[in-house]
Design a protein around this nucleic acid. Structure first.
Lengths: 189, 189
DNA sequence: TTTGTAAGATAACAACGCTATGTAATAACA
DNA sequence: TGTTATTACATAGCGTTGTTATCTTACAAA
């Protein structure tokens, strides 16, 4: 129903399933609980998708690939992305959400170790910056404020800027970014 | 009702006003239209608030102040901020929204002219990057995914990084950022 | 004074999430 | 194995939501 952009209603989702609305209360503790479970599932799927990316000998392109895969997953299921970041819904297990951020932290750390980034770069902080930037971008096109084609070039230029400010060589940065970005967007799901 | 975190309902807002629910339909074309008008009002107030900032001889601190004022306005009225970026609501006049972005563009441009930023920096693109970054940050704390105290340090470090990558001297950047940030947050509304 | 138009109160409608109640089916225990 | 306790969940209904249909009333134009 999310993908079809239908309003998700309790009566709507049990319609045609032969099951009554009560099942949602026994298994999910009502509508909020069910949407919370969907939210959880969204973070799980994102974690799986990011975990399927394999590291190369170019950690910065891996970093870009992670970002691209993140954006692509939001693009594939915009409504789910919006739901995932609705804080009013319950999220019993935040581990899946943290796991995705950890992917970014690791990629940053590897970029530091490969001497592409400055040794004094705090991997956790930079990863959070990259996430906030990407989250803002994803929110803008998933909510329909901007189109994806308006957002993408800004994201690419912004990531390149952040990589450079972290110590990477400008030309290397944009090369790695271009490579990682197409890799991450390409492997659709 | 937004500020009090009450659910905004049609019957709730006409209650006690002596007017009936029909007035909302004659003046706002229903609930969606009314919320759209509130959204519009949110952008207008933001534009006013940002327009009240005065330029100093330190354009980078002005840029930071604009960002801080933006963040502060989201912090003052989190629910309104979320509503403002709900793309499903109507926004008849996008001018107020554009005006706020233009503030950023101008501040960037002045930073370039003052030779704090590289001459080849595209002001519009950089302004959009800053906006996306700030929007992601604001969304995270307005929706309650993160607390403001978790977001703020990341924003500051991220902005500093973006300023540096645009050509500013690291020490000058963080000094201007610190000054502009306290100025922008300070002038509460 | 008459007539046309619009505002808006009243009331009802369909759909929503949710709960109370009742009824099978399953599990636990003697 | 017969009895009991518990769980799953269908049925039906409650209260509230946004919206609309109806109708009265006020005001403007002729």
């Amino acid at each position: 129903m999310l993908a079809r952009r239908e309003t998700v209603t309790l009566r709507g989702l049990v319609a045609g399933t032969g099951v009554s609305t009560m099942a949602v209360y026994t298994y999910f503790d009502g509508m909020a609980g069910l949407l919370g479970a969907v939210r959880q599932e969204g973070f799980s799927r994102l974690a799986v998708r990011l975990s399927e990316l394999s590291a190369t000998n170019d950690p910065v392109s891996d970093l870009a690939e992670t970002g691209a895969a993140y954006v692509a997953s939001a693009q594939d299921n915009p409504e789910l992305y919006v739901l995932m970041f609705d804080g009013s819904l319950p999220l019993p297990d935040a581990q899946a959400a943290d796991a995705s951020l950890q992917r970014l932290v690791d990629a940053v750390r590897r970029s530091v170790e490969a001497k592409r980034f400055d040794p004094n770069v705090d991997a956790v902080v930079l990863a959070n910056e990259l996430w906030m930037f990407g989250h803002g971008a994803c929110m803008l096109f998933t909510t329909g404020v901007l189109g994806f084609e308006q957002v993408e070039p800004v994201v690419i230029s912004g990531l390149s800027r952040l990589y450079c400010a972290s110590g990477d060589d400008p030309e290397q940065a944009s090369r790695s970014l271009a490579r990682g970005w197409t890799r991450g967007l390409g492997q659709g799901r």
